[in-house]
Nucleic acid binder design. Structure first.
Lengths: 197, 197
DNA sequence: CTAAAAACTGACCAAATGGTCAAGTTTTTT
DNA sequence: AAAAAACTTGACCATTTGGTCAGTTTTTAG
């Protein structure tokens, strides 16, 4: 599965070959077919695994009633995922770029429900005057876009920042703080004049 | 080229087949090889074309001396590109996900220089007290991430928003305004308490 | 008009692909 | 201890792949 995730991340579903996966896993190709049947089924297994990780990362959001802390924690956990499982993120990104043929149902049911739910929570906070008015769904979209980009497009940020051996822990730390700053300022949860750390 | 862009966007370099491109272009496969030689060369031609469009979209930024107007205009032009050339954006995204093997030089020279340059401009604005202090490079990263996501991951946003026939012009309009709000609030250029339009 | 250059294409090929299978080996069950 | 079940794998196959090429058609130049 790990080998498959890597190869699918690097080449997409169509471009990945079962022999490349077999080579990466250091197993004969026939063995992989014994366990997973077809390339399609293996891909689905990898995708299901990723969706599980994704969904479980969502659970954290919304248990506390403090918008600033909740949003910061969520951003931090999303960034942790971008750092620790970039390949998973890339497989997912590949699937989305292709129009999400295999996960459309998941997107428009479970994921949509989750977003609707959390957006309602954010709207409550706004109504209670706990944060500035924002488009709650788009706020969630922004958090996803800003955090996922550090996994999916690492090569771009790495090149622009002049890191020859990929992004460092410090880069991720800085990125995380900047995202938190942006999101909290958008929500009016930290004074804009404050210097960034 | 148009057909190739579409197929490469859908399947990535490895997954795209010359016959699929030929079919899409309604031409015999041999004809495509006559003009472009190899699949690799065709892909490079497509990529070069996209890089051109990208670079020219950058030119606008920085001519005026009004941060709010400049940033808004830039966000608007990036969103225009996400809407009008989503396939180009996806080809580029595919390349980045794969580690940018073919455009690494471009990223760490031209693009890096451009970012260094514009970040310096933003730093000037900050020094002049025209906007709140922010990490200028990360501000640019945020704008790119927030705008490109509407091309690359359209399928995701479309599913979550419950749009059965893809995103509408209005969705793009709302997204654009939300991104502008987020960026301007981050920069302290609009009061946070203001209601969003 | 003509001949040469350029553009085009159907038919083909070697290599790579996803997948199968029979013949084993190892592990589990009884 | 032996039978059954599960696992492993080298060799193989039909199909698809990127790419070629000989021959035809179209365009250009004198």
């Amino acid at each position: 599965m790990k080998a498959a995730e890597k190869v699918f991340a690097e080449s997409g579903f169509r471009g990945a070959t079962t022999s490349a996966i077999a080579l990466e896993a250091d197993l004969p190709k026939a063995n992989i077919h014994y366990y997973f049947g077809t390339k399609e089924k293996l891909y689905r297994a990898v995708l299901d695994d990723i969706v599980d990780v994704w969904l479980s990362s969502f659970k954290g959001l919304g248990e506390s009633d403090d918008p600033a802390a909740t949003l910061s924690d969520y951003i931090r956990s999303k960034m942790e995922l971008s750092k620790s499982r970039p390949e998973a993120s890339r497989v997912f990104a590949n699937e989305l770029i292709r129009g999400a043929p295999r996960i459309n149902t998941y997107l428009s049911t479970e994921l949509k429900d989750w977003v609707d739910d959390k957006a309602a929570l954010i709207d409550t906070w706004i109504d209670q005057g706990k944060m500035a008015p924002v488009d709650s769904k788009h706020l969630i979209f922004h958090i996803w876009a800003l955090t996922q980009t550090w996994a999916d497009f690492e090569s771009q940020w790495s090149a622009i920042l002049g890191r020859e051996n990929g992004l460092t822990d410090e880069d991720f730390e800085v990125a995380t703080n900047n995202i938190i700053t942006t999101v909290l300022r958008t929500c009016g949860l930290i004074p804009v004049s404050a210097r960034q750390q």
